[in-house]
């Protein structure tokens, strides 16, 4: 009985988190005057698997960060493209990165946004 409980505790300690990326976007932009939207596309090879955008306000100045969690299919390597836009008219900043997921860990990625 004690052995079983010990094994249970040991196994309980072995539970792993999902693989994740903590991506930090930075750049010399004032929000929302220089840029008011951040659009992000995630690709697995040539296929886009996710596309999201966030409005940027005075309360969300750069740098900002987003966590991508591999909670569905396994993606060994992904490519992340980011765009800063102003009033949905002009692209004011871009950045990109390719990164590998690591099982049970959160990989920190920094993408510096620059003017195109």
């Amino acid at each position: 009985m004690r052995a079983l409980l010990a094994a249970a505790f040991l196994l309980a300690g072995c539970a792993q988190q999902d693989a994740a990326l903590l991506v930090t976007f930075s750049g010399a932009y004032r929000t929302p005057t220089d840029a008011d939207k951040l659009a992000i596309q995630v690709y697995d090879g040539a296929a886009q698997i996710k596309g999201v955008s966030f409005p940027l306000t005075a309360q969300t100045p750069l740098p900002v960060s987003v966590t991508f969690v591999q909670s569905g299919a396994s993606h060994a390597r992904v490519k992340i493209n980011a765009q800063l836009t102003l009033r949905d008219v002009s692209v004011v900043g871009i950045g990109t990165a390719q990164v590998d997921f690591q099982a049970g860990r959160t990989v920190q990625v920094a993408i510096d946004l620059i003017r195109p």
């Binding site: 994740a20 903590l22 698997i49 969300t60 987003v66 966590t67 991508f68 969690v69 569905g72 993606h75």
Partner: peptide, 11 residues
């Protein structure tokens, strides 16, 4: 995992 300032996106 740690959640970023803009939130968490599940792939």
């Amino acid at each position: 995992p740690v959640v970023g300032t803009l939130g968490r996106i599940d792939l």
